[in-house]
């Protein structure tokens, strides 16, 4: 697997604030990589270093074989960018804006195809200032795709979307993946990372605290939770051996002739793992 992005011991500080404290990861060509973490964890700083906006303090960075700090317009032909906030000319129509950006690239995708792909067909002749926030965000995605890049950076592409719009954006991102594009996605929505990413890295305070396939991350945490009601109060039993514990519990209940109201066995979700990893005071998880 050739890597589209590789980062080794990357560091970046703003004055006294150490935003990124030595992170390393690789993104394979054609992979969707999710960078997860709460606000201020260093996601955007990392992505903006990869996009060539910021100079790093230390470490090595390679994006499509080049150092983004020195990369030129040829390199920019091959990347697509969705910034954290929408950046568009509000007086143009959707189609005019995409056509303007398409002209910057040597081999752009046909503008109407891009409009279709991001689901703005009905709005193609609408002035951008009258788009909704979600529609403007889809236009941002379209602008990132119009140059037909190999590598696409999506910095919180669906923040502020309603659930329907989010699912539509996911479908678009999956379509890009099936075209063989490499995608770096930052998000603080776990479900999004879980749905879209081949691998994720969880950032916390400028460090990677977990790294792997979403399923592996979930598998990392021990055991399961068994919940039921006793005299109207919820009882939670945490166990590494759910089969045995459940058997014992139900056996006791049968002997006593009582019903375990609201009985539920739950595997931890990625959300539980994420919360335990990003919890500020939970030092044990770090080690």
């Amino acid at each position: 697997m050739t890597s589209a992005v590789s980062i080794e011991a990357l560091t970046k500080s703003y004055g006294k604030l150490e935003a990124v404290r030595g992170i390393s990861f690789e993104i394979g060509s054609g992979e969707v990589f999710g960078l997860l973490g709460p606000n201020g964890a260093g996601k955007t700083t990392t992505v903006e270093i990869l996009e060539g906006y910021r100079k790093r303090d230390g470490g090595t960075v390679r994006v499509l074989g080049e150092d983004p700090e020195r990369a030129g317009t040829e390199w920019r032909q091959r990347i697509g960018v969705v910034l954290q906030s929408s950046a568009v000319y509000t007086t143009l129509t959707v189609r005019e804006m995409l056509a303007l950006f398409a002209g910057y690239y040597r081999k752009p995708r046909p503008v109407d195809e891009v409009i279709e792909l991001v689901g703005l067909m009905e709005k193609r002749n609408t002035r951008i200032k009258s788009l909704s926030g979600g529609q403007a965000r889809r236009l941002d995605l379209g602008l990132a795709l119009v140059g037909d890049p190999e590598l696409i950076f999506l910095d919180e592409p669906t923040t502020g979307f309603d659930p329907g719009a989010r699912r539509a954006a996911w479908a678009t991102i999956r379509a890009l993946r099936s075209l063989g594009k490499t995608i770096l996605l930052t998000t603080h929505y776990l479900e999004e990372a879980e749905q879209l990413s081949d691998r994720v890295a969880v950032l916390r305070e400028g460090r990677i605290v977990a790294h792997g396939r979403p399923a592996d991350l979930m598998g990392r945490s021990r055991g399961a939770e068994i919940r039921y009601l006793r005299d109207g109060e919820e009882v939670v039993v945490k166990t590494d051996e759910p089969t045995r514990t459940l058997h014992e519990l139900t056996a006791q209940a049968l002997d006593a002739g009582v019903e375990l109201e609201g009985l539920e066995v739950r595997r931890p979700t990625l959300e539980d793992v994420y919360l335990s990893l990003t919890e500020q005071d939970d030092e044990t998880v770090l080690s």
């Binding site: 996009e51 060539g52 920019r76 910034l83 906030s85 950046a87 568009v88 000319y89 910057y104 690239y105």
Partner: peptide, 17 residues
């Protein structure tokens, strides 16, 4: 206006010199 609404920053990521 273009700098504050992020268009200039966005343009920097395109191949337009």
């Amino acid at each position: 206006i273009r700098r504050e609404n992020g268009v200039l920053k966005r343009l920097r990521a395109t191949p337009l010199p």
